[in-house]
Amino acid sequence: MSTPPQSPQPAGQPAQPPQQPAQQPAVPPQPTAYPYPNPQSPPAGAFYAQPTLVGQPVPGQPQPGNPYTQPPQFGPVPPAGGGGGAGRAVLWAAVGAVVASAAWAAGVFLIGGKGASADLRGYSAPSNMCSSADYASFKDEYPENDSSPTRTSLKDKALDEGYCSLGLKKSGSSYSDAYLTMQLDLHKKTDPAAEFTATWKNYGESHTGYDVDPVEDIGDEAYLVSQDTTNGSSGGSRYATLAVRDGWVTYIMSYSTYLTSYDEDKDPPALTDVTDWLKTDAKATLKQLQN
């Protein structure tokens, strides 16, 4: 049987092997330190949550900044079964350090909790602040009673509070000519001193156009905040607040009036009179709410 003639190979060129279909070598999955799938090429139809960014808290993990949620930083503990006597000594030293640290932390909590008792000085927050607060100094100027004042009260393990807001009426007025609010807070878990001072002493820095003056002889510290924008017949407003702190108890008494026009029998009282009334009535209220 004759063999078909082959095409001659060009001189100087090696013989070419027969062509086979190309195949990709199988490569097993490679280990990686990145715990998430490759975000550049996820499998079709798959969905992956975005990886947590650096600096974001991870649920269930100790958070930075709180020494009581961090694992003890005593270095690696040697295996219990190796290292001989020296290894066991290092192990017991590390365990002892952990126990001592836990006992110290517990002692801080126990002593701190016992020593940080609330300084309430015998005050009690009434359930009806409107009938318990004294505002008698305003009665000559505003003799009409508010028939439906707003009042609230709160009793909680962290805070007791009594609040009242009422309208002040001149004789013959159908509507309120001014407003008065009174609020007593008994802080039973945290000392309000630092925040109280920061809020009221610096009130003029955070609120434009207000005068702030310290007041003597009321509680541990007190501040009078006032503003008068009235200008002849064009109207305006007059506002005054007396903020008092006595131990862990705070009392805030505020007066405000808003005017659009004046007539002879509707002129508001002078701001100096209002601030004197606030001081007198705040002292009287605190005295009668202190057992």
Rank of each mutant, 00 (worst) to 15 (best):
P25C: 07
V244H: 02
I111P: 05
S131V: 10
Q20S: 14
S174P: 13
G236Q: 00
G81M: 06
P28L: 03
P35A: 05
Y251Q: 07
V212Y: 00
M253W: 03
P35L: 02
S147I: 10
Q63V: 14
L271W: 05
V212I: 01
Q23I: 10
A222Q: 02
A136Q: 11
D267F: 14
Q288T: 11
P18E: 15
A133G: 08
W92G: 07
T3G: 13
P37A: 07
N66Y: 11
P37R: 04
S234W: 10
L91Y: 10
G85D: 13
L91S: 06
P10L: 06
A86F: 06
P126D: 10
Y48C: 06
H187Y: 05
D273F: 13
S234R: 11
N291H: 11
N291P: 08
F196G: 06
P149I: 01
I252P: 07
N38W: 07
R245F: 05
Q16G: 13
G235D: 04
G84Y: 08
D156V: 00
T257V: 00
K201H: 05
L166R: 14
C164Q: 03
S256Q: 15
L154F: 07
Q61V: 15
L120H: 00
S148R: 12
T285D: 00
A243V: 01
T208R: 11
T260K: 13
S237Y: 09
L271Q: 05
G113E: 09
A97D: 06
P143S: 09
S147E: 13
S234E: 14
G65V: 05
P8N: 12
D177H: 00
G172E: 09
A11R: 12
P51K: 02
Q16S: 14
A97I: 01
A125W: 03
A136V: 08
A46W: 02
A97E: 01
A105F: 11
A193K: 13
G107E: 09
Y34D: 12
F74R: 08
S101W: 14
V249Q: 00
M129R: 03
A133W: 06
P76A: 02
G115W: 14
K188G: 00
P269W: 09
P14F: 05
